[in-house]
Every structure is written in structure tokens, then in C-alpha cells.
């Protein structure tokens, strides 16, 4: 599977805020069916890289190839039309709405101008079922009443529901307990197994090693390592993150 053309390929991407160069000639590839981890210390440029893909903040220069075709990502709408969805750390869910409403937010289904609640409800329920989600009792619960893990589950399920090609998870396990982390990681693996390209940003190397196929390391705006999880270990990755180690041939 890993031999096919990458879904996303970034070439020599640059971004600066005033005099500060946040991304310096970054190369990054993401393949379908794989979990790609993006790691790096605070301020390394992870968020900036992701914001570019999400269309929130476009890159200054460089090429973005999506399915081998060059694209410009200048608005969140554009990214989501291509099938790139970001599940943010702060989750971007509306607490006052229920699970179905949140999963269909911005893409509600209507029938003769009227919301088709029944249809949306059954689609939401079957998506959650297909992800073997067992922790959510009713799809008509208000999101405010859910636990952190359940909220994360809803956010990920939304990305699945829309049949996205690329799902970007920003610190999906940061606020979760042990059991909930385990559930979310299983969900992440399931996404990749279903043929989606998954990008996961995490500070938790244990999680990264548990779930990722490839690891990219950003250090001060440079992509200093691109590794296969099976061919590396935690000590090496920590070395790259802290800058005590570097990979000659780059990414």
C-alpha cells in the first residue's frame, strides 16, 4: 500500500510571521492507509504546518500536491472539499447541540427545505456502529454531557462520516485517561485500516509508537527526520525532537 502515490505531498513549503521563519523548506508526505505521526517540540512548526493543510493559514511558498495534482489551500472550505478534515485539540464541537447535530454541522441534510432528522440520525448511528463505538449510549445526547473520550470519538466519527481522504488529529489523546486513550488509538488505527490517510500530532511518543506507521520530526521549522516506526526507537526520536541528532539524507 505504501508504494502508491502519496495523497498529500508538500515540497519546500515555507511560512514566516514577520522576521520569524516558522517553516523552512519543509517536505512532508502522507499516504493512504497509513498513520503518519508529526512530532516536534513546542514551537517546532507543527501547528503552522497543519493550519496550512486545513486552509486556515496558507503557506508563503512551496508546492502542495494532492493526489499528485498541485492545489492551493486558501480557505477551510477548499480543504474540506478536497476531503481534508482536521479534528482539533479543542474539538470544535458545539456543546449545546446533540451528537447528530454536531456530526452534520455545516452539512445538514434537508428534504424539501426541512431538516431530515431521521436520515441524519440513522447515518450518524451507523457510522458510530461501524467504528465499533460502544461508549456512546444515545446519538441524541447533548455533547456537553459527554466525557473527553466520547467527545473525541464524536469528532473523529464526524471526519469518517464525511468520507474524508485525509484526517488530521491534533493531540487526540492529550486530555484523556488511560482507557479512553486506548479507545481513541484503536479508532485511529481503524481509520487507517479503512484506507484513509491519517495524520496524528502528538507529544506522547508512546501513543505515536503504538499507532503510527511513519514518524516525521520537525525541529525549529525544519523537517529533520522521516522514519518508519518499525525501523526506529523512542530514544532516537527523542534525539531528533531535542535536536541532538539529525538525519543526513532528510525527508
Amino acid at each position: 500500500m505504501s508504494n502508491q502515490t502519496p495523497v498529500i505531498e508538500l515540497k519546500n513549503v515555507k511560512k514566516s510571521f514577520g522576521p520569524v521563519e516558522v517553516l523552512k523548506d519543509v517536505n512532508f508526505t502522507v499516504r493512504a492507509g497509513e498513520v503518519t505521526a508529526l512530532v516536534g517540540d513546542n514551537g517546532a512548526g507543527k501547528s503552522t504546518l497543519i493550519k496550512g493543510l486545513a486552509g486556515i493559514q496558507s503557506y508563503d511558498s512551496g508546492t502542495v500536491l494532492f493526489d499528485a495534482k498541485p492545489v492551493e489551500l486558501t480557505s477551510p472550505r477548499q480543504s474540506s472539499e478536497l476531503g481534508i478534515d482536521v479534528v482539533y485539540q479543542d474539538l470544535a464541537l458545539c456543546d449545546n447541540l446533540d451528537i447528530v447535530h454536531n456530526m452534520f454541522l455545516g452539512r445538514e441534510e434537508v428534504n424539501a427545505g426541512v431538516l431530515d432528522e431521521g436520515h441524519m440520525e440513522s447515518k450518524a448511528a451507523s457510522t458510530l456502529t461501524s467504528l465499533s463505538v460502544k461508549t456512546v449510549k444515545s446519538v441524541r445526547q447533548k455533547v456537553a454531557k459527554l466525557s473527553g473520550g466520547q467527545r473525541q470519538t464524536v469528532a473523529i466519527a464526524r471526519a469518517v462520516l464525511w468520507n474524508n481522504k485525509v484526517v488530521i488529529l491534533d493531540e487526540p489523546t492529550a486530555a484523556l485517561g488511560v482507557a479512553q486513550t486506548e479507545q481513541v488509538l484503536q479508532l485511529v488505527r481503524k481509520l487507517a485500516d479503512a484506507g484513509k490517510a491519517v495524520i496524528i500530532i502528538s507529544h506522547n511518543l508512546q501513543d505515536v509508537f503504538a499507532v503510527a506507521d511513519r514518524i516525521f520530526v520537525l525541529y525549529l521549522g525544519k523537517m529533520i527526520a522521516s522514519l518508519k516506526t518499525s525501523e526506529t526507537n523512542q530514544a532516537d526520536v527523542v534525539g531528533y525532537i531535542t535536536g541532538t541528532k539529525s538525519q543526513e539524507d532528510g525527508a
Partner: peptide, 24 residues
């Protein structure tokens, strides 16, 4: 209660940033 617009009103009131990211 029954239209897309109404749902978006509740969404913007609940979490405007989430609504924006959802393309509203």
C-alpha cells in the same frame, strides 16, 4: 427547529469557532 439556518443559529451561539470551522 426545522431549517438549516435555525440549526446554524444554535451552532454559532454555542461555539462560533466550531461553526466557522464546519463551513458555516
Amino acid at each position: 427547529n426545522r431549517t438549516k439556518f435555525g440549526r446554524h443559529v444554535y451552532a454559532v451561539g454555542g461555539n462560533a469557532e466550531a461553526a466557522r470551522r464546519a463551513g458555516i
